[in-house]
Design a protein around this nucleic acid. Structure first.
Lengths: 210, 210
DNA sequence: CGATGTGAACGCGTTCACAGCG
DNA sequence: CGCTGTGAACGCGTTCACATCG
């Protein structure tokens, strides 16, 4: 029902979690689901679940609960997953290559449709049925294939050399696997995935234990 | 100076970021650094930087700023990075294998010292100089090698089969790459890395744009 | 009755503003 | 005088509690 409200990042993460749970619920053939059930499966509270959903509308029936299949399609639409997204992978080292061959993205609405690298050995070769382009071509390819998101898996030292190309490529969002903070205009959304930082957070918590 | 204070996760992430910046500052040969300088490089505010550091002590000199090399060692100690951590990788599919060969962990204090899988083709083989053990051996190996952290990169369907083994293995922390929510006692710290959820958050933000 | 939907209360992380000190 | 260190104010996300309605 509302639209211009500001939504917390944390609420969006939880919606992703609810979505997965609800898909299981649908698969299990359940016809209703309560906020309490969703809460216990996702490690939060029933009030939190209801509040999160109420940010976007009134999807349940009082006294009954929610329809799992209805909620699935509503959350998909909220998250923008009622359509497929075209993705480019930039940097085909070990991690980049592993991602290209990972079915999990395809299964959830993300199609890897272009690959970029700078190595003369890789450019022109084929990976998982896709031709590897030189990063210099990113603008043209992004435009031609209508790509919106880039997954950045280059070595951190390579970032300065290519960040301008990414900025001007027409890409709208970047999933950044490098430890560099990307300097991009805020018309480009950036999300960071940083394994080392997660390990450091674990290290901190384990150290706290004494 | 304080010790039993409750520290926000967000503060810990920022410390990781500061650490990387400070290492660059040291490498650049700077002898002082201000909270303002750290803030602009890490995308936060000077007050935030000072508050984060003050959670753990008074490390600066009024009127002058901080000593980068001093701060590096203090933050390393705070995060528990003044020692090395022994890690096991469970699940040697594409992602797991990519991680094993990644130098970035070693460079930052994390040593991958054991590998586990269930596939009869992989168990017994060698990867990057390490023998692959069957997951059934995890308790013994974790104990023998004094491993504290496990990186979990198995397919999500495999989680139920191995979660009990992990629980009882003596592992103290898990970096969970699967989309499953792990049911582990809270004596075991769990951190989740979930690429699809990050992509879904990007999808949401890009969809919001209209 | 039962479970949702939601204002209001709460708690916590961030920001402010200035005292403190080199 | 400059920059840190920090109590206080603030804002926002979470939790509470109950009115609401099938």
């Amino acid at each position: 029902m509302p639209n211009k409200k500001k939504i917390a990042e944390s609420a969006i993460s939880r919606l992703s979690v609810y979505l997965r749970i609800l898909e299981d619920t649908v698969a299990a053939g359940e016809s209703t689901v309560s906020s309490q059930a969703m809460a216990s499966q996702s490690g939060t509270t029933a009030a939190q679940v209801r509040k999160d959903l109420s940010l976007f509308g009134s999807f349940g029936r009082r006294g009954l609960g929610y329809s799992p299949s209805d909620l699935v399609s509503r959350i998909r639409r909220i998250l923008g997953l009622h359509r497929r997204w075209k993705i480019a992978v930039i940097g085909l080292g070990r991690v980049g290559s592993a991602l290209v061959e990972h079915r999990g993205f395809f299964d959830r609405g993300f199609d890897i449709v272009a690959l970029f690298d700078t190595s003369e050995f890789k450019v022109g070769s084929n990976l998982h049925g896709l031709q590897v382009h030189h990063i210099d071509e990113i603008s043209r390819v992004v435009h031609d294939k209508k790509i919106e998101v880039a997954v950045l898996t280059v070595p951190v030292e390579a970032v300065p050399d290519i960040i301008d190309l990414i900025r001007d490529s027409g890409i709208k969002g970047v999933l950044n696997w490098t430890p560099a903070r990307l300097t991009l205009p805020d018309t480009i959304e950036v999300k960071n995935v940083n394994m080392v930082m997660e390990l450091e957070a674990l290290s901190f918590k384990l150290s706290q234990r004494e």
